[in-house]
């Protein structure tokens, strides 16, 4: 970052002030020998390329096609994901909760921003912001309306507040019209929001 040159002479917005302060802090930490900026570069690159909702989508698609895996996943999320060689960073505390016609699950962290990074990547701004954190536990149907969908009035809504180091992944319902699809095809349908519980997996071809 120290190699970059920015001209902020005419821009004294809060953003540019923050940017300068952040650069100064990195300079100090580097001069003190605490961090190597190249290590920060490598970490950022890993976040940008290796983690993301594609990991969670693969887990969901596998659960939809492999009943034994699904059973194991719901019993112990971390252990089941650990058996998939291509996903290795899950940690010990993953809890997978299943949506059914009787119950819709939704995940929030009212106190900060706890989120299953290893499954879904870094959380979106709305997940970390006051409107979602305040309302999800009290008016989840209103929140779902903000996302543009409703669930039946008789369906139970279960909200999981992530107040400790346990992390929650929603296993959405498999849409109709996907019989015989491969795991890879199914994974393409699975959205990030469907694994937070603020979206549904759409039937292919249906208007979203």
């Amino acid at each position: 970052m120290s190699e970059h040159h920015h001209d902020h002479d005419h821009d004294h917005s809060e953003l540019s002030d923050t940017e300068l302060r952040v650069r100064a802090l990195e300079t100090i930490l580097t001069e003190k020998g605490y961090i190597d900026p190249a290590a920060l570069d490598a970490m950022i690159q890993a976040y940008e390329t290796k983690i993301g909702p594609h990991n969670g989508a693969l887990v969901v698609a596998k659960a939809w096609t492999d009943p034994a895996f699904k059973e194991a996943l719901l019993a112990d999320g971390s252990a089941a994901v650990g058996t998939l060689g291509h996903i290795s960073r899950t940690g010990d505390h993953l809890v997978v909760v299943e949506n059914t016609p009787e119950r819709h699950n939704m995940v929030v962290c009212t106190l900060c921003s706890c989120y299953p990074w290893e499954m879904l990547g870094l959380p979106p701004v709305w997940y970390k912001a006051a409107p979602y954190r305040s309302r999800a536990v009290k008016d989840p149907r209103g929140v779902l309306a903000d996302f543009g969908f409703t669930i039946p009035n008789e369906t139970e809504i279960r909200v999981w507040d992530s107040t400790a180091e346990t992390r929650f992944l929603v296993l959405p319902m498999r849409p109709a019209g996907t019989e015989g699809w491969s795991e890879e095809q199914l994974a393409e349908l699975v959205t990030r929001d469907s694994m937070i519980g603020t979206g549904l997996v759409q039937t292919p071809g249906a208007p979203s």
Binding site: P124, V125, A130, S134, D146, D161
Partner: peptide, 15 residues
């Protein structure tokens, strides 16, 4: 920071 159940923050706005 302890926001659960507070009112008045408005709609959730996904980007």
């Amino acid at each position: 920071h302890d926001m659960g159940g507070m009112d008045g923050f408005g709609k959730v706005e996904p980007e």
